[in-house]
Design a protein around this nucleic acid. Structure first.
Length: 911
RNA sequence: GCAGGGGUAUCCGAGUCAGGUCAAAGGAGCGGGACUUAAGAUCCCGUGUCGUAGGACUACGAGGGUUCAAAUCCCUCCCCCUGCACCA
């Protein structure tokens, strides 16, 4: 085991010293990337899976003669590293323990760990420490990365690059400023994400946009919030909760009546809420309001279902279409007629009434009301048509005009927006979560139709692995809308158009692959970050203007040579964020010829059947992989256990079992290296050689489509089984002699997967080149006849063994008869026309043969001479069956001769 | 809810687009055997049911349909996974 690691380290060192993975412009290029990792801690095998795929593709392409660029960098943008540094500073035990664990992966000295933890109070130190370790880890797996081009996203060069990118987006009008609703904790004074909310991961909290309708009341308006603004035409009354607390508030010039809860929320949504007076709910009872559309006067009535802590605390009542309203009116015996405004197929005039009857609703506290509401809402939304009393919306489908009604109400000043959480939520420390609005938030406007169109067209042009993601990305592109792109705090690039904002972490990582093409040259020339101004990037990336010096010229050439990014490999988790931004930003900034060529999306990695998580203790860190298993075993395991697009389950037991197989492979290869070659081959030798090329041909086709798992099954697993079979027929010693003939090609075909092993054996064969940059073999013609013959014999053996097992005979003699010319003719005729064949048949046997052949469709082409084949394998069959074999004997004691079919000889066994 | 992807033998997992060669690759597990003082490792055989002649039957989430023929095509239903926005 120690040996293995030593060997791997040796080759890693030699590759590095010889700069074989540091390409310069030369020949046909292939540029592959994997998203850079966020370097706030040790990586695990899930990250390793993605990079392993990237590396195998890079290595395969390289061996096919492409000039391959496979770079990486480190992501440090955003708040997490900041939060971690703060937590360590504040003595947060969980975080300190976690980081102590991470450090134990790399450090033995306890006092050094303490020092490092102290240093981690400064966020940059965390990022730089782990970036360095991640590089070491990656090198230990043998990734063919060009490390000269690494950078991190907080360094000045990168900042200048991102700044430039945002200037371009701004010029194009893709940056917008506006208000944005977020979940927020009043007590903490902070926005809260899913992680901050109690049960936020299991029971998601989303933001719901209500329309708060205005109803004239006293010197202001009552706000009654609704999710169904289209039913406003059917409003008959307002609901108030008599026991709840309400307030009169002033916001600017507007006077509103809402619940106390709602007033607080409005303060965070609109701001400057001034409370004028407080009321108990019953204050409003039996007073009237005027609805603004038709200026009807309607009453305010009591209802206990009204929750003052949901929306505005007043509810508009549409009894014709809302089961709650219908039942609440019935509960208080109100003499109010529902006003229908929607006609829906399968329902009469008052759908709410019907639904309530159908569900047998007792009163407004009945749990089934929720269900009834859901059902009716869906029916009316998808199938409903607005009736004649609905102004310009009359006669239209509900689903078509719902949003128009919303916009219309707001533009007429009949309503305002009110945001509410989709459920009652509190933070992990128990503080209430509301929806607040961030003012002056900068967005990237992905809703721009022109931009979407360009991106759709890119999606059509690109390659996707697997194919199904093309469809998925079209959907995601449509779904994408404005997205905030800056935050108040975090590491990263300051926003160039307004002080006090940092470009958010997913928004600074969209076109950075372009940066890989030039960063090493910038560094070599030690450019001043200030030289990387707008003109600089305009020229280098867009060819605008002229080069101001030779360096800029060189950078431009490098960019033009390497771009576009031919393939980007990552996991499915990035689909609706990073990947889609990657596509959008490329279509925004670069011309078609520099837009991405392909995307490969890997499935996720789980461990022992469960998602990796600290609490389950099943996280497998990458740091110890090479030491514990060897890099090549890891790589082989990653590639052979699951197809790239499916979930990979990391199982210790299977890794162990694969290790044995890899050892077996090593043993075979080592024996082969010390064996003599052969210059004359027998049939079985040719079989093994042909079988290798057959496997290889299949594997190469599979690899062209990045189906590496299937490829490795062919050239590793299956071919090793072929060798086993050969050994049974001939001998292990001779197998090595035959293998000597194909070993160089076998090693080359496996080099992308297990490069260290192959490199080592390649050199043991006396070669002094690197197998990593040897040419991948071409496919070869194979002699199928040799393979068919062996398969034929095996089928005969299976038949014999089958008979023996069923009949319990201990055989003495086994008669094997091949099909007569007469039978072959008959089958040939039957193949063309079964009726003619039946006429041709002379006796019962022949008729039976025809029936069997036709019903089982035994028309397969038989290209071999069956009798000769059997004769050649006679001693083998005898050995396998422990009986005397008679082929096409004149004797026919079992009357079986006439039953022989082409390709399926008849057999008779004598005790 | 919306969107995407799935349900295959004890388990994991190919096969489904282009229907027959599929009782279904590969692996794990399990059973038997060889080797061994023994264990482990390794190798061989087996692993749906039945069967004294190479076969028959039952099977690929459930049900129905198309077809000479369905894991594969069509319809209906059930179940599972992933993502859903500022979080890297």
């Amino acid at each position: 085991m120690q040996m293995k690691t030593e060997i791997e380290k040796k080759w890693q060192k030699l590759w590095k010293e010889n700069h074989i993975f540091e390409p310069e412009m030369d020949g046909k290029k292939f540029f592959i990337t994997v998203p850079y990792p966020y370097s706030n801690g040790a990586l695990h095998v899930g990250h390793g899976r993605t990079y392993t795929y990237g590396d195998i593709i890079a290595r395969y392409k390289r061996m096919q003669g492409y000039n391959v660029l496979f770079p990486m960098a480190f992501h440090v943008t955003g708040t997490p590293i900041l939060t971690i540094a703060d937590s360590i500073k504040n003595g947060n035990k969980d975080v300190i323990d976690l980081y102590r664990d991470y450090l134990h992966l790399y450090e033995n000295d306890e006092s050094k760990i303490d020092d490092l933890l102290k240093k981690f109070e400064i966020p940059e130190n965390i990022a730089y420490y782990f970036a360095e370790k991640i590089q070491k880890d990656f090198e230990s797996i043998g990734y063919s990365i060009d490390w000269r081009r690494k950078f991190n996203t907080a360094e000045p060069y990168y900042n200048k690059f991102v700044e430039w990118q945002y200037k371009k987006l701004y010029e194009m009008g893709y940056l917008k400023k506006g208000d944005y609703p977020i979940t927020y904790s009043i007590v903490d004074g902070n926005p809260v994400g899913e992680d901050d909310i109690k049960d936020g991961d299991t029971d998601k909290v989303s933001i719901v946009e209500f329309i708060a309708m205005k109803f004239k009341f006293e010197d202001g308006h009552i706000l009654a919030a609704t999710l169904r603004p289209e039913t406003i035409f059917g409003v008959t009354n307002i609901w108030v909760n008599p026991r709840a607390e309400y307030v009169k508030i002033r916001i600017g010039k507007d006077i509103y009546f809402v619940s106390s809860y709602a007033a607080e929320k409005l303060n965070y949504q609109i701001g400057n809420v001034e409370i004028i007076q407080k009321y108990k709910g019953d204050y409003f009872l039996n007073k009237n309001v005027i609805e603004l559309i038709n200026n009807r006067t309607i009453p305010i009535l009591p209802a206990t279902f009204v929750d003052p802590d949901n929306a505005t605390g007043f509810v508009k009542s549409v009894p014709a279409h809302a089961p709650y309203d219908y039942i609440a009116l019935r509960d208080i015996n109100a003499n109010i007629d529902p006003i229908p405004v929607i006609r829906v197929e399968g329902f009469g005039k008052i759908p709410a009434e019907e639904v309530c009857e159908k569900f047998g609703i007792k009163d407004q506290n009945d749990k089934k009301l929720e269900e009834a509401t859901d059902l009716l809402y869906k029916e009316e939304f998808y199938k409903g048509v607005m009736l004649d009393n609905c102004a310009q919306f009359s006669g239209k489908m509900v689903k078509d005009i719902k949003d128009q009604v919303k916009d219309w109400l707001i533009s007429k000043n009949f309503a305002i927006k009110f945001y509410e959480t989709s459920r009652k939520a509190v933070t992990r420390s128990g503080n209430k979560v509301i929806v607040a609005i961030v003012k002056g938030q900068w967005f990237i406007d992905y809703s721009n139709l022109e931009w979407k169109k360009k991106t759709h067209s890119l999606i059509d042009r690109m390659n996707f692995y697997p194919q199904s993601y093309r469809e998925k990305f079209h959907d995601v592109a449509d779904w994408l809308k404005e997205r905030p792109c800056v935050r108040r705090r975090g590491l990263g690039t300051p926003f160039p158009f307004e002080n006090g904002w940092i470009i958010e972490s997913l928004s600074d990582s969209t076109i950075y692959m372009a940066f890989y093409t030039i960063i090493h040259i910038i560094r070599e020339n030690n450019l001043n970050p200030n030289d990387l101004d707008e003109k600089f990037f305009d020229y280098v990336f867009l060819g605008r203007g002229n080069a101001r010096n030779n360096i800029e010229k060189e950078l431009r050439e490098n960019f033009q040579y390497w771009y576009p990014n031919d393939l980007r490999v990552s996991s499915t988790a990035h689909t609706s964020n990073h990947f889609i931004f990657f596509l959008f930003h490329h279509t925004a900034i670069f011309p078609e010829k520099f837009q991405p060529g392909g995307l490969m999306i890997l499935g996720m990695l789980i461990s022992e059947g469960a998602k990796m998580s600290k609490s389950k203790g099943n996280v497998i860190p990458l740091a110890k992989i090479a030491e514990k298993y060897s890099a090549d075993l890891f790589r082989l395991y990653i590639i052979s256990t699951a197809d790239y697009d499916t979930v990979l389950d990391w199982r210790e037991a299977e890794v162990k079992s694969l290790e044995k197989r890899l050892e077996k492979f090593n043993q075979i290869v080592e024996e082969t290296i010390s064996a003599k070659g052969l210059d004359k081959f027998n049939d079985m030798d040719l079989y093994l050689i042909n079988k290798f090329w057959m496997r290889f041909n299949t594997a190469k086709d599979l690899m062209e489509n990045y189906k590496f798992r299937d490829a490795i099954i062919e050239i590793f697993y299956n071919f090793m089984n072929d060798i086993k079979y050969y050994e049974k027929r001939e001998s292990a010693e001779r197998a090595r002699m035959v293998l000597k003939n194909i070993l160089p090609e076998w090693l080359k075909s496996l080099a992308p997967f297990i490069p260290h092993t192959c490199e080592e054996y390649w050199h043991m064969l006396g070669k002094n080149t690197f197998i990593s940059i040897e040419k991948f073999p071409d496919k070869r013609e194979i002699d199928m006849k040799i393979i068919d013959e062996v398969n034929y014999i095996e089928n005969v053996l299976i038949d014999i063994k089958n008979i023996l097992s069923v009949s319990n005979i201990v055989p003495k003699k086994i008669y094997i008869y091949t099909a007569s010319e007469r039978t072959k003719n008959l089958v040939n005729i039957a193949k063309k026309d079964k009726n003619v064949a039946f006429k041709e048949a002379k006796n019962k046997d022949e008729l039976n043969i025809l029936k069997q052949v036709i019903s089982q469709r035994l028309f397969n082409e038989v290209n071999i001479n069956e009798k000769e084949t059997l004769l050649k394998a006679k001693s083998y069959i005898e050995k396998e069956t422990n009986a005397e074999i008679l082929i096409d004997s004149d004797e026919d004691p079992g009357k079986k001769r006439n039953l022989a079919l082409p390709g399926k000889p008849s057999i008779f066994i004598l005790k």
